[in-house]
Design a protein around this nucleic acid. Structure first.
Length: 583
RNA sequence: GGCGCUGUAGCUCAGUUGGUUAGAGCGUCGCCCUGUCACGGCGAAGGUCGUGGGUUCGAGCCCCAUCAGCGUCGCCA
């Protein structure tokens, strides 16, 4: 009878079994050969006896050979059980050995979790995937996605697929374009998200929609961001923001329970303003405290010119506790100042609360009473350091917020096994564009403002708050959602506000505005990044480690060697011509 | 496009102030080994020090350029 390599137990003793898998390792004792046979399910020790004809064949087994064996399960002799393996009480005495396919010597060791060069791993992705960490991560990903689907099914949602070839709408990220053979000069776009399509499904009366949706954005990748990625996409009709939050939070609670066996506490909620003030970030890591403190008052009388001018110009001096930072050397602090600058700080003043007294990079201005007040305000202790950031309010908070993560990392306060979810609510509807100062959508242009704020659209749009919410986890944004605008009239107002002409609106969004005219129900929803969720759940720090076939930083698939040139004929069939590469 | 880190054996790394023949562990190959599980023992093979140029009597090491990977800024409605 066939078994997986993780199945056999002591209770299977004397069973006649067939196992197939990869040779994880061979231990050749000369007169007796052990091998560990591996498949997705586990590892089983098989034993070759010199009396058997297959012994000489067993001597030739090598790592990653694919074999099938038939034999008898027996208990291992007392004292030789392996407690590290679930199958460690038994072994299979092999009667028949079939070598199905020999393996070349792999470019790196499959049976060890050692670090290997990323490029090599990508080139031999199928071998990297064979190793335990990726096997685990991909299996976890399946469990998470299944838990999500089960949850929404239970709640009456339909999973509906939306097309991959859609219309380019020039807002947002750069589109991936697909040229049309039948319509020369015209292009499809790959979806950045199924945003408009899911809203159309609401207008179509489906009420509750979800999809595990593939999305593409032609932007540079990061450790937590891949150009091609997967979203849990959700939309529902006749809902309030509160209902969306409840459903999404329950979904995550269900998912963590099913996939990780963990119970999640209720998610704390912070307004956007609150998050920025307290943590200097709209995606604060709540695994630790280290709240930022505005300490302008402490320096009200300071002679320190930089601080003084910041206070006079209505900026902020922000203090951050660095637990254990008091023992750092001047050299370490110099490096930390550099880190702060890379994180957007103009500069950074440090105050070290050493056992032998207070030291500071601005010692002249950090009088004893100032140090005492800072210590009190940041709840610091002897042995800690306090970092000070002075700048325009937003900039100072932002830099301090980034350094908050840096010092927490150094202080070992970012435990990957702790999951601190939170909601961020009350985002602004518009943000001023840094270059032009013009208002642009903070989320996307379909987001509804708070119901009573439409009159601000002409007078003071930047003050409008949106029915927009983010879910964050351990300092990562998992995703955003909002209540959408469901009246064409209001949608047109927003487009106009964003500077689109009537013609542009009709050309790009005409189909959508028309749909809003035919009885569009109020609706809202959310989309969460599946890759990021799995990454954090798996305790990985790179999103590639939870994607079966990821691309590298320059968007190349180095295993397939994509993208690649194509025959000229294929290009001309599309009525296209390639330009010579840019010099 | 900018910045940073990395590049030495199949893999992971060490390599002192620029100085003889570039080392280790794992893997690979061969021989030995009947209770191992990172089996053990003995032996062997394996190197364009990313690439190109320069400085020097002499470069893995210093300088310049370049390529690749990773991280990051820009970008990500």
């Amino acid at each position: 009878m066939k078994y997986s390599c993780g199945a056999l137990r002591a209770s299977d003793e004397k069973a006649s079994v067939e196992l197939a898998g990869w040779v994880n390792v061979r231990r050749d004792h000369g007169g007796l050969i052990f091998a560990d046979l591996r498949d997705r399910d586990g590892i089983t020790q098989i034993v070759f006896d010199p009396q058997r004809a297959n012994f000489s064949e067993a001597e030739r087994l090598r790592h990653e050979d694919v074999i099938r064996v038939r034999g008898t399960v027996r208990r291992r002799p007392a004292g030789t059980e392996n407690a590290k393996l679930p199958t460690g009480e038994v072994e299979v005495a092999v009667d028949e050995l079939e070598v199905i396919n020999r393996s070349a010597v792999p470019p790196f060791q499959i049976n060890k979790d050692d670090d290997v060069d990323e490029n090599l791993r990508m080139q031999y992705r199928y071998l990297d995937l064979r190793r335990a960490p990726l096997q685990r991560n991909i299996a976890l990903r399946h469990k998470i996605v299944k838990a999500m689907r089960d949850f929404f099914d239970e709640r009456g949602f339909l999973e509906i697929e939306t097309p991959i070839l859609i219309k380019s709408t020039p807002e947002g990220a750069r589109d991936f374009l697909v040229p049309s053979r039948l319509h020369p000069g015209s292009f499809y776009a790959l979806p950045q998200s199924p945003q408009l399509l899911k809203q159309l499904l609401m207008i179509a009366g489906f009420g509750r929609y979800m999809q595990i949706a593939r999305c593409m954005r032609d932007e540079d990748s990061r450790a937590d961001r891949q150009t091609e990625f997967t979203q849990l996409d959700v939309e529902l009709s006749f809902c309030t923001q509160e209902e969306v939050l409840e459903i999404m939070e329950s979904c995550m609670r269900h998912t963590w329970r099913e996939a990780l066996g963990m119970e999640l506490a209720p998610f704390p909620r912070l307004s956007h303003v609150q998050a920025m003030e307290t943590y200097g970030s709209d995606k604060p890591d709540l695994r630790f405290g280290l709240e930022l403190q505005r300490v302008n008052d402490v320096f009200a009388q300071t002679e320190f010119a930089i601080f003084k001018s910041v206070i006079d110009s209505d900026g902020a001096i922000v203090a951050l506790r660095y637990p254990g930072g008091g023992t750092l050397s001047r050299r370490d602090f110099d490096a930390l100042v550099e880190t702060a600058k890379q994180n957007g700080a103009k500069g950074m003043v440090w105050v070290a609360l050493g056992a032998d007294g207070v030291k500071s990079s601005a010692a002249k201005f950090i009088h004893e009473n100032v140090a005492a007040q800072l210590r009190e305000r940041t709840k610091s202790e002897t042995g800690d350091a306090i970092l000070l950031f002075a700048d325009a309010t937003e900039a100072a908070l932002g830099a301090a917020g980034k350094m908050r993560n840096v010092v927490a990392e150094r202080a070992g306060m970012r435990d990957p096994k702790t999951f601190a979810f939170a909601w961020i609510t009350d985002f602004p509807l518009f943000e001023a564009d840094e270059a032009t100062g013009k208002p642009g959508p903070a989320h996307h242009p379909f987001t509804a403002p708070n119901d009573d704020q439409w009159e601000l659209l002409e007078s003071d749009p930047l003050r409008m708050r949106a029915q927009h919410y983010d879910m964050v986890l351990n300092g990562f944004e998992l995703g955003s959602g909002s209540i959408r605008i469901h009246k064409a009239e209001f949608q047109r107002k927003i487009f106009a506000m964003l500077g689109l002409t009537e013609d542009q609106v009709n050309d790009r969004f005409g189909f959508f505005l028309r749909a809003l005219d035919y009885g569009a129900p109020p609706h809202g929803g959310m989309a969460l990044g599946i890759d990021r969720i799995v990454m954090i759940a798996a305790g990985e720090s790179n999103i590639r480690d939870v994607i079966a076939f990821p691309k590298n930083q320059l968007m190349r698939d180095v295993m397939m060697d994509a993208p690649s040139p194509v025959p000229e004929q294929l290009v001309s069939d599309l009525s296209l011509r390639t330009l010579p590469p840019k010099p």
